[in-house]
């Protein structure tokens, strides 16, 4: 499996650490209520198809990436820097 890092280019999967679904970028407000926080912390989709997830380029440049991966085919459909997405949102 190869993952394209926006900084380093296409690299071997072994350089990356998988963190999970990219929900960590959508942290609810402190007063959002128990249900939102329960969703944020514990409840995950288990989709068959394109999924957005967080990967850390641990043994490479050290950047956090949002990678879109098809869970059925394992096709890597794109990747972006998590920091760039956060800055675009704020």
């Amino acid at each position: 499996m190869r993952i394209t890092c926006p900084i380093c280019g296409e690299r071997d999967r072994r350089e990356f650490h998988y963190q999970g679904a990219a929900v960590a970028l959508d942290r609810p407000a402190p007063d959002a209520g128990a249900e939102s926080w329960d969703d944020y912390l514990h409840n995950r989709e288990n989709p068959a198809g394109p999924t957005r997830e967080l990967w850390h380029h641990e043994a490479g440049c050290g950047a956090w990436l949002v990678v879109t991966r098809d869970t059925v085919t394992h096709e890597m459909q794109g990747s972006e820097l998590a920091s760039a997405l956060q800055e675009a949102d704020s």
Binding site: C8, E10, R11, R14, E15, A59, G60, C61
Partner: peptide
Amino acid sequence: PLDLRETQFKRGHTARSEIADMPA
């Protein structure tokens, strides 16, 4: 796991990657 081919990793290029499973 780096692609070290002549056309990909030239003089003056550098990368963070693994050497024998060690961060390098």
